[in-house]
Nucleic acid binder design. Structure first.
Lengths: 124, 124
DNA sequence: TAGTTAATTAACCATTTTGTTAAATATGAT
DNA sequence: ATCATATTTAACAAAATGGTTAATTAACTA
């Protein structure tokens, strides 16, 4: 089977898994992009309707969508002049899995809360 | 109870929860910082021992630790000339919770995998 | 006191990020 | 062909990021 490459494929079929995490976490560090992802979880949307609740310009949203697409977090489907964006849950879930795996190694929360309070009462 | 303020408290007691997520996800977008967090999950460490496996300079590590500390992801404890860094699991877990909450609204994975393949075979 | 060690800060630099406005592209409708 | 609509690209600017080396601070040690 031949697969026409998107940015996503080009970037991640070849390289380390690390970079996918870099990009997905970077995607998630912006509140606009988090909101876009949240809304796409309800189903595909056009750029215009995605942009509607935000105060920024359309090109700004377009750029965010490119960041999301490059990270593999969304993909798009053409229909006339419209682009319908979809989220790719499996890609976002890599970040979730990383965090879940990490938390398996947490020491008990209570001890750490203690530590934290110590930090914020005694020391600089 | 009076609490002497750290960067963390100053920043987040007052402001939106959104900013905590911005910062925690930003922290996680860097592989050096992810590795630091991973290693701190095994217990506290000094800057020197944290820096040891990395190829970058000590000040670079110091900066990463400040980013981590400002985001509330780690805190430190003084002992002589040493600073022992600890991870604050509860703060990292906010990111995990956000992703877990999000994934409750995912449509079924299969349908989205289909979508994804469509994207990468038919369209530009 | 002088020296050593651990860590941070300062000053700097290249690159990336995130927004802007204006122009370009592409599709559908008249 | 022309026009309107949806979206992207270009060109630009300010700020943030992530690294460097050199200098500074702080605590212990001889």
């Amino acid at each position: 089977m031949t697969v026409k490459c998107t940015r996503f494929i080009i970037k991640y079929m070849v390289k380390y898994n690390d970079e996918l995490l870099n990009d997905v976490f970077h995607v998630l560090s912006d509140p606009t992009r988090r909101e876009i992802i949240r809304r796409l979880a309800d189903g595909e949307m056009t750029v215009m309707s995605l942009a509607e609740p935000f105060e920024m310009s359309l090109p700004a949203i377009s750029k965010h969508l490119k960041v999301l697409e490059t990270a593999g977090v969304v993909s798009k489907r053409k229909e006339g002049t419209f682009r319908y964006y979809n989220v790719n849950p499996d890609v976002v879930d890599r970040a979730k899995e990383w965090l879940i795996d990490l938390s398996k190694f947490w020491p008990e929360q209570l001890i750490n809360l203690e530590h934290f309070l110590d930090q914020n009462t005694k020391n600089r």
